[in-house]
Amino acid sequence: ELTKEQQALMKLIVDAYNKHQIPQDFAKKLLQEQYSADENFLLLTEVATSQVQVLVEFTKSIPGFLSLDHEDQIALLKGSAVEATYLRSVQVFSKKMPTGYAQLLEERIRKSGISQDFITPIFNFYKSISKLHMAPEEQALLTAVTILTPDRPYVKDQQAVERLQEPMLDVLRKLCALQHPREPQYFARLLGRLTELRTLNHFHTELLTSWRTN
């Protein structure tokens, strides 16, 4: 069972995750309007910028994060922004959305000028993670765990980051056992998705470069 402290930590993380969402206007724009390839590019860029801002606001709420070295805070956010954003977008593809929303969004991304070679692994990731049917609490905690990855480039005090990540991992592990009593491998599978995310992160830099060139 979760201790009182762990329950409080989980509530704090989940509340912060829910509080900081990208503005609904973007979702409406994506749904309602027709765009040229250029406009699509601009809209996706705006969405990406907003996602990073939301990520930073969420991260500020993680207990202890703001007490880390300032440059380490930036290194952690820089290193995890792409992964955390992909995780956040999982909601779009797994939650019950208005009919056709996910397809429309997929269509927009496919028409954005990004090469098919990059798009396929992204959608494969969404499909594989959707199969896990993650609970909202698991998604919020997994995002916090991702952000607090000690071995990101340029992080100086890795131990300080580990000290923040470990309690999150403990809560997530217990939560997985409580919510999926018949799937003892569930926690391991969640962590496996993090490995997949890391691969996407490496891919993402190439994706951006090729997109810009186009």
């Binding site: 990073v52 930036i74 820089k78 922004a81």
Partner: peptide, 21 residues
């Protein structure tokens, strides 16, 4: 890469709370 500078810029501003800049 320029993409990383852009990202870092957004992060620094958001950490300082100057989203409007």
């Amino acid at each position: 890469p320029a993409s990383n500078l852009g990202l870092e810029d957004i992060i620094r501003k958001a950490l300082m709370g100057n989203l409007e800049d």
